[in-house]
Computed example of a mutant assay.
Amino acid sequence: MTEERFMSTATSAAVVQEAERFGRKPGRRVDEIVRAGTLAEGVYELVIRDAYVARNAKPAQFVNLYPADASLLLPRPFGVAEVTGDEVTLIYQVAGAGTRQFTQLAAGDAVDVLGPLGKPFDLDKSANYVLVGGGLGIPPVMLAAQALSVRDDVTVTTAFGYRNERFADDLVAQYVDAPHSITNEEGNVIDLLDSIVPELEAAAKAGRPPIVLSCGPTPMMKAVAQWGGRHGAEVQLSLEARMGCGYGACVACVVDTPQGRLKVCKDGPVFTSEQLGWVV
């Protein structure tokens, strides 16, 4: 790393220390890139060093990364996929000019970060947590698998849907009791959920009813919500949206609900299927 980058990392630590001193959340800061690479075709991994995010991020929360190009004003939200020590893993795909810039980053580079942000999954109950992710909706539920893996009052089942390459199965295997996945060629996540109903019913009879945690394309999550309604399962959904600020000030990421328009970044990203009116 250059001297400038070492100074940036020190400045980031100072931002966090100053905020914690006054009981506030830290603002925008500069983090070091620990690792960057490709997991599968079109799927990228970025690992940043941020002790505050590593300590405080909860499943389904996200961080905002700011492109280096000043003409790209808005940050891009990235769901936290895993934490190891003070390292935070983000997994993403290119959605435009901003995210394309992040693919050019390498170990030792720096990136501006804000977070963690948003409302997380509710993991308070003893249950069989069924993590349903589609495509790049898989990384946000991966952190739930990691968080739940240390508890002895839950089991964790995955139902991941991939376009082709199963880029997350090996990464999440250490945290999961019953891993399942499917590719587009084989079917979809509803097909997969239907195939494991006997397994889910057995866990329910043993005292661990299913609680579905889902993230992915909206049509997929609506189908998951309806599946949960048919099978009597609680469903929590982490919505994907284009965000401006990430903390509720710009009103760029609203979603229509029976309760009115809510902000995905602040009121969510996690909502229940009942809150969204997606139940059968």
Score class of each variant (00 low, 15 high):
227 W>V: 01
19 A>M: 14
116 P>A: 06
189 V>C: 12
187 G>N: 14
131 L>Q: 06
196 I>E: 04
127 A>D: 08
275 Q>F: 11
192 L>C: 03
44 Y>F: 14
232 G>M: 07
30 V>Y: 03
50 D>F: 06
264 V>C: 05
68 A>H: 06
114 L>D: 10
154 V>D: 07
236 Q>R: 04
76 R>F: 00
84 T>V: 14
118 G>V: 00
59 P>A: 15
138 I>N: 04
136 L>M: 09
89 T>P: 01
10 A>W: 05
259 Q>F: 05
29 R>V: 01
82 E>W: 00
103 T>I: 03
140 P>Q: 09
273 S>H: 02
108 G>F: 15
201 E>I: 07
219 P>L: 11
272 T>N: 06
163 R>G: 15
118 G>T: 00
65 L>Q: 02
188 N>F: 08
261 R>M: 08
34 V>W: 01
2 T>V: 09
153 D>E: 04
126 S>L: 07
227 W>I: 04
262 L>Q: 10
222 K>Q: 11
111 V>I: 08
85 G>C: 10
51 A>V: 14
207 G>Q: 15
63 V>R: 01
46 L>A: 10
158 T>I: 11
185 E>Y: 05
148 L>D: 09
5 R>K: 15
80 V>S: 14
153 D>H: 05
106 A>E: 03
176 V>P: 05
256 D>F: 00
90 L>H: 04
214 S>C: 15
229 G>M: 01
192 L>E: 04
280 V>P: 13
206 A>N: 14
145 A>N: 10
86 D>H: 08
29 R>H: 12
242 R>W: 08
245 C>E: 13
235 V>Q: 02
66 Y>N: 13
36 A>V: 07
124 D>R: 15
222 K>F: 02
99 T>D: 01
201 E>Y: 02
46 L>D: 01
195 S>R: 14
105 L>E: 07
269 P>D: 06
210 P>Y: 01
272 T>V: 05
226 Q>D: 12
40 A>V: 10
251 V>T: 11
194 D>G: 08
214 S>G: 13
76 R>C: 06
183 T>V: 13
210 P>W: 01
26 P>R: 11
124 D>M: 12
156 V>M: 14
